[in-house]
Write a protein that binds this DNA or RNA. Sequence first.
RNA 1: GUGGGUGUAGCUCAGCAGGUAGAGCGCCGGGUUGUGGUCCCGGAUGUCGCGGGUUCAAGUCCCGUCACUCACCCCA
Length: 420
Amino acid sequence: MSSQLQAPKGVAEYVPPESEAFLTVREALCEPARNAGYKYVELPIFEDTALFVRGVGESTDVVSKEMYTFDDRGGRSITLRPEGTAGVIRSTIEHSLDRGQLPVKLWYAGPFFRAERPQRGRYRQFFSVGIEAIGGDDPALDAEVIAIANEGFRSLGLRNFRLELTSLGDSNCRPAYRIRLQEFLSRLDLDPETRDRAALNPLRVLDDKRQSVIDQVVDAPLMLDHLCSACSHHFAEVRSYLEVLGIEYSLAPRLVRGLDYYTRTTFEFTHAGLGAQSAIGGGGRYDGLMTTLGGQDLSGIGFGLGVDRTLLAVQSEGIVLPPRNPLAIFIVALGSEAKKRAVLLAGEIRTAGIAVDLSYGDRGLKGAMKAADRSGAHFSIVIGERDLEKDTGELKNMQSGVQETISLATLIATIKARLL
RNA sequence: GUGGGUGUAGCUCAGCAGGUAGAGCGCCGGGUUGUGGUCCCGGAUGUCGCGGGUUCAAGUCCCGUCACUCACCCCA
């Protein structure tokens, strides 16, 4: 056992039957974006380390202690992407996608990597679906992004998720607020570690889960109360659009994101069934990121949704996802001549776009029928030596048990008709 | 990175005054010589996570380690 190879620590693997649910969840999360005009981007899984250091922020936990960074053979520092937004912005600038009509609307899906201590819902390789709308200040765009995430979760049948919303202000009003908050925090009795955090990213202290800290920050000044008029107006517009859309949310003035680039509208979707790692998706506006990465001064907004966690949420609510690609028919051949006919038939049926499987090996009829049953096929067809002369088979509806003799020559047409 | 819990068949778990392993489900076969899902009968599979220690004897006690898990932290 000690020599048994196993997957690296902290990675999630999806194998049948769970892997089918994983695909369903991932597609459900992508679908609303495609319906809203977002175009697909396929980006590298590793990037120049400097992209994340500059984009995500050197002081963030993600960059300072959670990245998989290594030197490639040319001595370049490479990092496995810990999030998606920085890469999308880099690619947008590199390919001048922002030189045409705005906003540029993009979506992506794939694996991301963070070297954290694994636990339920937190993996070292995890899967996200994300979108970015670049080059638009319109509050309606903020609402659209939130609505797309909401629709993804809703379409899976999820009910026990919440949307938390706030505004983090911008370069105009946040610095002043930050100083005000730091002054407040400096008067509190905090441990050294928290004190350091207060100096580096004071907002983060408001999000502390320890009761001793929570008690001390109840009266802390909140960003929402100190927004400049432009930010305040923008946030009010976003809220009014959400109301029009009928999307419920709760204001979370203490909501903080761990990535430095967020400004203004910021949100998080959480689910109660996951334990401590409750965020199933999150995102927000990042009005300065593009210039930070060397592009023109365009704002943007986007989200990242956790496929792994959304799957956990689906499971925790006991939602049964519909099967994917159910087999239309399962062929049972008796004898070597019948087997040849069955193999040929299966190829023809697949070419016609119909899902079919067949019994392999030397199983008896009983065992083969059992396999047909397990396969979930709508129909089974038994082809034995005695049927071969007439080129017929015994077609059975697996649900009703009704069986009839039908011609193999017209099998495809028969199946199509029966499946309607 | 810090602390707590767990680790026995493919899965869920039982076994503990220390005496070299069991159940249910699943899987395979038979009852039904060409028919599944119910029922009945039978069968296969474990270096009891790994390494070391105590003991005549360790799945059971001790230590270490790895993995999983929960919380802190952080976030998807």
